[in-house]
Write a protein that binds this DNA or RNA. Structure first.
Lengths: 210, 210
DNA sequence: AGACCCGTGTAACAAATGTTACTGTAAACA
DNA sequence: TGTTTACAGTAACATTTGTTACACGGGTCT
């Protein structure tokens, strides 16, 4: 039995289920910045996060992109859950935000465990619920906040996920994830710097307010 | 056994479950425009739609409002499902779009049936999936479309739900649901009228394009 | 009929966001 | 080392969206 599996999921699942997961899953260590799921991709395995963080992005045909939310340890991808019931195509793109350790479980077992373990059912429902609330939160931010507020919000999230107020990124990358243009981001970042909220460097910036 | 229950849910559930639903649920006929769920409200019953349509709105503290999507017959409210597992407070507001017939099931049974009936599990997962996709679609529209496109989209949805190209509403109401101002909607509607996409009347409008 | 309210039309302006173009400069690389 | 490339700063301008103010007219009520 993998120790880290027990550590992160031991409080959720009984030993019997933990053993099953342990037996049918494969471990993956994935470096930062790796795309692990693409839009339209058929999913056959379901990821359970042990360490690290993954960013989930919406990506449409016209090259439009938008950050939806981050996943952290103990999370699974509700979009993958989705694929086990109805349509099998991914609606989102997933990229590791930092070095990440996860185990992959063939989707076949999801259905089996739903009938067999109440703890698994609870986990799946809980996952759906959490993702749903995250999506609602994302909608709130897009619909109700102005770009400068969204930007600051984004920077805070990013600092939180990375556990570091120094954020390694470019204006262009931020622009993609917030679905706006590089010039707009540069402008707003400069404004934030004048307000002493951040310090700008090349290829990075530092968050001063939390 | 209610005939309409059999009609709309017979293909989803086995007779035994249909009987259970029939026995523990109460029927409600709700007129158009009635608020049936409010933000922050604790939910004790779960609605299953038999006839009609319900609009689901996001509503924040500052009075900001936004239409998320519509529910139709055969749908249930995934947000209510959400409340049965973790937090018990509603994150959304629900208002009948047209006269609506639905049955209310105490949330207690949801958990019981999850263990007992595979068809119920499938229904719940399917509901989550559908709502998730609807939320993604909502995000796409808000993030990637301009207000005039969102408006036309909204009018088409509304015509579809009501089964009528004549839409009874005011500019102010549209403005609330798209989270913008009345003046903006008047302006864009007038533009749509000049483009022969709609005809404007007082308290109503007619959609010409489908 | 007259008074009133509500929904709509529209102008004029303000603010936010998007676009294009050009500059300077740090880092990467040959 | 000099050259190249990617990133960032900024101006000038366009477009979209939001705001304020006011006029007009249909409907309702008395």
């Amino acid at each position: 039995m993998r120790q880290d599996l027990k550590t992160h999921y031991g409080h959720l699942f009984e030993n019997e289920l933990l053993e099953e997961i342990n037996n049918v899953s494969t471990l993956k260590n994935i470096p930062e910045g790796t795309q692990i799921i693409d839009v339209g991709q058929t999913l056959t395995k379901m990821p359970l996060l042990l360490e690290g963080a993954i960013k989930i992005l919406r990506d449409d045909d016209n090259g439009d992109e938008l950050l939806l939310y981050f996943l952290e340890k103990g999370d699974t991808c509700a979009m993958t859950l989705t694929c086990c019931t109805g349509s099998a195509k991914s609606e989102i793109k997933a990229i590791t935000e930092i070095d990440t350790k996860l185990i992959m479980v063939p989707v076949f077992y999801m259905e089996v465990w739903m009938g067999k373990y109440k703890s698994w059912r609870d986990f799946v429902l809980e996952s759906y619920q959490t993702r749903m609330l995250e999506l609602l939160d994302t909608i709130d931010k897009i619909a109700f906040l102005k770009m400068d507020e969204r930007l600051l919000n984004y920077l805070k999230d990013k600092a939180m996920i990375n556990g570091n107020t120094k954020i390694k990124t470019t204006h262009q990358e931020i622009a993609y994830e917030l679905h706006t243009s590089r010039v707009v981001i540069s402008r707003l970042l400069k404004k934030l710097e004048l307000q002493k909220a951040i310090v700008l460097h090349r290829n990075s910036l530092e968050l001063l307010t939390l």
